[in-house]
Each structure stands twice: as structure tokens, then as C-alpha cells.
């Protein structure tokens, strides 16, 4: 009797909680709506009169192409370097490998412009390598972004690799496969979801990257976020900045949505 009464109240309170619960989610959502959605809507509205002029301009087209070029090159670089580092930490471990993995985690929280700042000393006209021309080329931005975003690829990879049973690598080796074959045919296929996740996040973040480009400040490497800043703050051309912002949002969100969908589909197939 008592037990039945108890379970009855549990059910009742559960239902009540379920009914009213979503109301609690409204205040934080309202906050985001006012502070993010509303401003973005205004940006879109503000941009309307300036579209023709900006889209036609060579400045805009160059920046668009540069942004995509830099983001794609950086992402490829991050994937190569990040995969190599993660494979070594996971499968050819050395004393201190865990410290290195921890260091990688810390780097995620550091500001990206530090890397650009250090490049002034390494590649600057009076620096270690005195590669003056390099610092103003897009390749400096790519190298800086590879440096900074490699940890973003490594983190999901390290997690996925730690879940990969060591016995699979052992068995593959016992069947006569050398390290290269094991890597290509066992490790990489099995961590592919993590590779795709890390790579797409990196692509998104490098498309949006601002600090590195700002600090390197090279003439030939104006990207879209940089152009938003120049137009908005330096030239006070709000409508022009808004147009570029809208294009950038479309690019980022479009890519984000496509990747999430692609990833979601893959995950569904894998499960």
C-alpha cells in the first residue's frame, strides 16, 4: 500500500516537472536572443543598402578567396601535424607523454595572438630567422594557425585513440602488418569520426580567426573578419561592415550546418 502510494507520487511529480520545466529554460534563451540574435538581425537589416557596392569590390572578393585559402590550408596542416602528434602520444608512448597531452589541453585556452606575436621575434626582420618577407605573406598566417589550432585536432583524436583497444593493434601486428599498414588500415579508419569532428571544428575556427591576422597585420592577408574590423572601426562604414559580416555568417553557419549534418549522418551509420 505504502509502496504504491509512493510510486504514485513519484509519477505525479515527474509529470508536473516535465510540464513546467521548459519555462525555466526561457530566461537564458531570452538572454541569448537579446544579446546575440537581435544584434545579428540588426546587422542583416543594416547591410541591405550597401550590398551592391561591397559585393562588386575587388577588395571583398580578394578577402573572401584569401579567407577560404588560409582556412583550408591551415586545416590541412593541423590535420597532418595533429594526427602525427596524437598517434605518437597514444601509440608510441614515451615517459612524459601524458604531460605533453596535458600541455596540449592548456593551449586550447590561450589566446591565439600570442603565436602571431612570437612570429615577430622568430621571422621578423631582426629576429631569429630574419625571414622578413615571410612574415607579411599569407603563409605566416597559415603557419601561425597551424601552430595554434593543432591542439583542437589533437584533443578529439587523443580521446578516440584512448578508446581504441590496444589488442587490435597487437593482433594486426601479429598478422604481419607493419606500423604503416596498421596506421592506415586500422587506426585511421577507426578514428575517422574524431578526425572529421576535429577537422571541421578547425575549419570553422580558422575561417573565423581574427587575432592572428590582426597581429601579423600584413597587407596581403586581409581576411573577411579583418575586413569587418577595418570597415567598421577604422573607416566607420557600418553598412559595409555589416554586408561582410552577413557573408561571413552565411559562410560559417552554412559550413557548420553542412558539417554537422554530414557528421550526424555518419554517426548514425556507424552506430
Amino acid at each position: 500500500m505504502a509502496v504504491e502510494a509512493l510510486s504514485a507520487t513519484v509519477v505525479v511529480s515527474n509529470e508536473r516537472r516535465r510540464d513546467g520545466k521548459w519555462l525555466w529554460a526561457l530566461p537564458p534563451l531570452l538572454l541569448i536572443a537579446v544579446l546575440v540574435v537581435y544584434p545579428l538581425v540588426l546587422v542583416a537589416a543594416e547591410s541591405v543598402p550597401a550590398w551592391g557596392g561591397v559585393i562588386e569590390s575587388a577588395e571583398f572578393r580578394d578577402a573572401l578567396v584569401r579567407t577560404v585559402q588560409i582556412a583550408v590550408s591551415s586545416t590541412i596542416g593541423c590535420l597532418l601535424v595533429g594526427t602525427f602528434l596524437a598517434v605518437v602520444i597514444s601509440f608510441v608512448p614515451f615517459p612524459g607523454a601524458r604531460v605533453v597531452a596535458g600541455l596540449v589541453d592548456t593551449m586550447l585556452a590561450l589566446p591565439s595572438f600570442l603565436v602571431a606575436l612570437s612570429f615577430t621575434f622568430i621571422y621578423g626582420t631582426t629576429g631569429i630567422l630574419r625571414a622578413g618577407g615571410f612574415l607579411t605573406s599569407p603563409w605566416a598566417v597559415v603557419l601561425a594557425e597551424v601552430t595554434f589550432y593543432t591542439p583542437f585536432v589533437m584533443r578529439p583524436l587523443l580521446a578516440a585513440m584512448s578508446r581504441l583497444p590496444r589488442a587490435q593493434l597487437d593482433v594486426a601486428a601479429s598478422l604481419g602488418a607493419g606500423p604503416w599498414r596498421v596506421l592506415r588500415q586500422i587506426v585511421l579508419p577507426e578514428v575517422r569520426p574524431a578526425l572529421v569532428a576535429g577537422g571541421s571544428l578547425t575549419l570553422l575556427l580558422t575561417l573565423n580567426e581574427f587575432g592572428i591576422v590582426l597581429f601579423l597585420g600584413a597587407k596581403g592577408t586581409t581576411t573577411l573578419p579583418m575586413l569587418v574590423h577595418t570597415k567598421g572601426i577604422v573607416m566607420f562604414d557600418y553598412p559595409g561592415a555589416c554586408v561582410i559580416a552577413v557573408v561571413q555568417i552565411a559562410l560559417s553557419l552554412g559550413l557548420y550546418a553542412v558539417l554537422r549534418m554530414a557528421l550526424g549522418g555518419r554517426r548514425a551509420r556507424l552506430d
Binding site: 521548459w22 529554460a25 537564458p28 534563451l29 541569448i32 536572443a33 544579446l35 546575440v36 540574435v37 537581435y38 544584434p39 545579428l40 540588426l42 546587422v43 543594416e46 570553422l204 575561417l207 573565423n208 580567426e209 581574427f210 573577411l224 573578419p225 569587418v228 574590423h229 567598421g232 557600418y238 561592415a241 555589416c242 559580416a245 561571413q248 555568417i249 560559417s252 553557419l253 557548420y256
Partner: peptide
């Protein structure tokens, strides 16, 4: 509301921070 909340909260990460700033400036 979970899906909506997820999407809305991811918005500031998916959009460049410069654009978030521009939005606040305009708004």
C-alpha cells in the same frame, strides 16, 4: 527546447567574434 537551446548557444562560437562585436555595436 533542448535543440533550440543547443543551436542558440552554439551561435556565438560559430559566428566570428568580430561579427558578434559588430552586432553589439550596431544594436
Amino acid at each position: 527546447l533542448a535543440r533550440v537551446a543547443d543551436a542558440l548557444h552554439h551561435l556565438p562560437i560559430a559566428v566570428p567574434s568580430v561579427v558578434v562585436g559588430l552586432g553589439l555595436l550596431v544594436a
